[in-house]
Design a protein around this nucleic acid. Structure first.
Lengths: 372, 372
DNA sequence: CAATTTTTGGCAATCGCTTGTCATCCCTAT
DNA sequence: ATAGGGATGACAAGCGATTGCCAAAAATTG
């Protein structure tokens, strides 16, 4: 225990000399320090303070700040100056309460740690901020129930929703869409406005690529059963392979995580296929690892095509051939679609469907079919 | 153009048969569909409706819902039942307005697409949700100004802040900490309550590891100049290498992104070192790529140690030896520290510092020093 | 059984802002 | 010069909860 403390204090030393003494009486990795009080926010200036300082009525201040055209130019400047001087920030709560709008959009994703969604999130965040909206990020943990729940619980606190790769059933989705404005990403159009990443057409490219390399036995490695994207990719795969008279197989469903890759790889190998089209990159990367462990060479013995071109697809081993999607842009477009509904006055044609093009990015995980 | 449309419509077919007709008159990747109206949320039930249905006063409803002990058990059940029946959700806006609390915590991270922060975010999200708080995620884009700005703008809409790897100056941080409750992650203690990931002691482990492999010329590859973590790692590196009488060098600062890896790799190679301790995994992975391009073998010619053990560190090529951090846990602890300040009644000892242990994870990017 | 304490529940003010209504003022056009 | 009209700004009523204060009811005590 003593040596523990000493070791730890020597570590603390590296952070801050002043901590050494404290460090000696600390317990494990926790330490109570002299209480430096943590301020609670003092009284904040209100619209009334600003009005007073500017010598106008509060309503004038409100209009000057939210509806600038409604107020005299010079008066408005005076008000803005006063506001700045007082460091005034309107309370979004009060604002929302009386106006009925929250200026907030909730973005629901199935798994916050899946890199695919990072880019979506970044796209939505960017576009929302530009429009003066706040983004509320929700991780629904791949669960339709949690998704429905969040949708319910937050209906008062968000003006609209963006559902990325929703796991809801069509019924649930229809119901949700009737309750509040929402836009889906990668989900059947018609139920709600949707941004679709055109992976089916990328599947065609991927198949052509594999065929050109001599592959004839191709396996589809499926993702989550409740994923609409997965269904569409599978559908495209079936249609296109039939047209080309290829020998196909499929395995799955698998969770879209690298940890599912081992099972997926084993199953795919077992089918005798020489190439796999995999639901997404996460799964594909997991497969790559497993295949190496088993001594199955990629791409000499087995070619792998992923989907999404996420972070990591370029530096895994071997780098992954994948169907690249403009993910961040999809997030942005989804926000535009939602906002144009939320604020019809600013119009823009209210599209109900946006299709994002994709393309195949060939790296090292695909190669000529093995000569048997 | 016609062929464009045809190609596209054949793609649409894969999504939804009902879209084929629509598909034919679509423009490029956009399409306007018959307007299926997007509901605006109807009248929401208020606390008054619940009170009426339950046959009590609104204040009773309010108490029953927020302060259950204050109300008769059976009455409360009746109220809860009524609330459930009406599908009542309290308006967080109105609640916040009158109570002064928002039940929201803002989490500020420098780069939302940096995997290091994913885990932080997931940790905070998890813990906040468990406590009934909402997380507001903000990407400050590695900018101290944006960070300060967000802190200002959101002071009304969040009860507290968590600053992950803040880029603020000490002065800015001190000022911010005086204005609102906040907890920092990986930042100097003393200014504000902090969760520190103990990378300095991991640096010791890393150095011992490298020394045991025979390395004597070691280069520190630095991260952002405004990063406190970077400063501390550098400091630890200096102290420990001096004690061991190693030949050292340093390069940087570099942005903590894979794209900076090329410059970092070239610079590090130029110093003649046989091993690098790199600010973080992102940079290290970028270096790995560059080194391969240049035909410098890892670890035969050069050993690389990263930091953080982020997503990707295990499947890059070669898999990265790195100093692993309990990142998600750091996020969770930060939230606990913040909440125990926000709600002193629920107490818990208000720690001002939590130190998260780290350890070295050895993979394939480190090996014996080259015989010269 | 009366007196006292403890629960329980209702009233009404309040939070900070938006917004409908209306009075005022200044221009313009006749 | 004066009526008509458009800008501009003041007033006050909410928005939907919370909460301090107090009254009524119930439980406890002697």
């Amino acid at each position: 225990m003593t040596s523990d403390c000493q070791k730890l204090s020597s570590v603390l030393q590296l952070w801050d000399k002043s901590l050494i003494v404290e460090g000696q009486r600390q317990m494990r990795n926790t330490q109570t320090m002299p209480e430096l009080e943590l301020q609670s926010p003092g009284k904040q200036p209100t619209i009334r303070d600003v009005a007073e300082l500017a010598g106008v009525a509060t309503s004038t201040v409100s209009r000057a700040l939210t509806n600038p055209g409604r107020v005299n130019h010079v008066t408005r400047e005076r008000i803005e100056e006063a506001a700045a001087q007082l460091n005034y920030i309107p309370s979004s709560q009060a604002r929302g309460l009386s106006s009925g709008r929250t200026q907030t959009v909730a973005v629901l994703v199935p798994d916050i740690t899946n890199p695919f969604y990072f880019d979506i999130i970044r796209g939505t965040q960017h576009q929302l901020k530009a429009a003066g909206y706040t983004q509320l990020l929700v991780d629904t943990e791949e669960s339709a129930d949690m998704e429905a729940d969040a949708l319910q619980k937050m209906r008062r606190s968000a003006d609209g929703f963006i559902l990325a790769a929703s796991r809801l059933t069509d019924e649930q989705l229809t119901e949700a869409a009737a309750q509040q404005p929402l836009v889906t990403i990668n989900r059947a159009p018609a139920i709600a406005p949707t941004v679709v990443i055109d992976t089916p057409s990328a599947i065609i490219q991927a198949l052509e690529h594999l065929v050109s390399l001599g592959h004839t036995k191709i396996c589809f490695v499926g993702g989550p059963a409740t994923s609409w994207s997965n269904a569409k990719r599978w559908q495209a795969f079936q249609v296109e392979t039939k047209e080309r008279e290829l020998t196909t197989s499929s395995v799955g469903p698998f969770a879209p995580k690298t940890t599912s890759g081992a099972a997926a790889a084993d199953a795919a190998v077992h089918t005798g296929a020489t190439a796999c089209i995999v639901f997404n990159d996460l799964l594909a990367i997991g497969m790559l690892q497993r295949l190496r462990e088993r001594g199955i060479r990629v791409p000499e013995d087995m070619s792998i095509v992923g989907c999404d071109d996420i972070f990591g697809a370029d530096f895994c081993n071997p780098p992954l051939t994948t169907m690249a999607s403009p993910i961040e842009q999809a997030g942005r477009v989804a926000v535009s679609m939602l906002l144009s509904r939320l604020n019809p006055q600013y119009g823009g044609t209210s599209r109900r469907l946006a299709v994002m093009p994709t393309h195949l990015t060939v790296r090292a995980s695909t190669g000529a079919a093995p000569a048997h």
